[in-house]
């Protein structure tokens, strides 16, 4: 394995990680499941390409700098997600998933028919702009933004929505607003990931952003453990690298992948990290919780405390 190959895998993993981090906020922290985030990646990839592709090629772009593409891709996906959120965030349970699936597929099918962007044949000639350092920097910024957001009253409100929606409302939390924030942030992340993806592949096609891609992102979040940023990071690195390393078995790798997903669901549904963070503060918190549990168990066994003995 040469460096070029490893670098490619790292870049793919880093790009996936951007999208996964966003989805982690939506799914892991706010409790909403999406099967349509590939659609937001597609919006990012196409808008980004539209900004940067040279005006002389066909399909033509605007020939602007890459940074403009990144901003446009993220903003575009965010704006679209806002309107989608307006009509779907009130749906209950399964139906929100189904709606995101519908929108994700609709975005792909619309792109299939937009000849301006090359339709289903795709769009070649996207400049190669995604570099490993740039991706790493964006990943780090994405993690910091997310970690700080989650550990604030805004993040706590989202977690409350995930834990018990009705109780969150009664506690004065504007559930719709916080679902919306989570959705828009996750869509911006997915859009930015899409821009980097397009400028890594140098060729984009609606087919790349199918429901399978959306499912893959959600699976990574669950694999890493809901409500854990470090889990999402590990998940994205492992699950992107694994299929690439399995390339030797090319045709069998997706078979393993499918089997692994079922296996994870039926055997370790809490994911790698199970809501824990791999940081000093996170580990301390986990230790305190364990201590408290042991203490409570002891007390209820001794039964000296009247209330603790209640069951």
């Amino acid at each position: 394995m040469d460096w070029f190959y490893i670098q490619g895998i790292l870049m793919l993993a880093g790009i996936n990680l951007i999208a996964v981090l966003g989805l982690s906020l939506l799914t892991g922290f706010t409790g909403l499941f999406s099967f349509g985030h590939a659609g937001f990646m597609a919006i990012g990839a196409y808008l980004g390409a539209f900004m940067t592709v040279s005006p002389t090629t066909s399909p033509a772009g605007l020939g602007l700098p890459f940074a403009v593409g990144v901003i446009a891709g993220g903003a575009g996906a965010g704006i679209v997600s806002y309107f989608i959120g307006r009509i779907t965030l009130n749906l209950k349970g399964d139906y929100f998933c189904i709606a995101t699936l519908g929108f994700g597929e609709a975005i792909r099918l619309i792109l299939n028919n937009v000849q301006l962007f090359g339709g289903s044949r795709g769009w070649p000639g996207v400049p190669y702009k995604s570099t490993l350092p740039a991706i790493i920097i964006v990943d780090i910024l994405a993690v910091i933004f997310l970690a700080n957001l989650v550990r604030s009253r805004h993040g706590r409100n989202m977690i409350a929505v995930r834990e018990e929606e009705l109780a969150a409302q009664i506690a004065g939390i504007n559930v719709f607003k916080y679902k919306m924030i989570a959705l828009v942030v996750s869509a911006v992340y997915a859009g930015v990931a899409g821009v980097f993806f397009g400028h890594y592949m140098t060729f984009i096609q609606p087919k790349m952003f199918s429901m399978t891609k959306s499912t893959e992102l959600t699976i990574i979040v669950i694999f890493g453990g809901l409500g854990s940023i470090s889990g999402s990071v590990l998940g994205a690195l492992l699950l992107t690298a694994l299929p690439e390393i399995l390339r030797a078995f090319e045709i069998w790798r997706l078979v393993f992948y499918g089997a692994a997903v079922i296996l994870i669901m039926i055997s370790r549904p809490k994911g790698l990290m199970g809501g824990m963070e791999l940081t000093p503060a996170g580990l301390r918190k986990a230790r305190n919780e364990r201590k408290a549990r042991i203490l409570a168990l002891k007390e209820s066994k001794n039964g000296q405390n009247g209330e603790a003995g209640l069951g």
Partner: peptide, 11 residues
């Protein structure tokens, strides 16, 4: 630091 789920019922 106890997780709410592990609290005794009355608590």
């Amino acid at each position: 630091d106890l997780v709410a789920n592990n609290l005794p019922y009355g608590m």
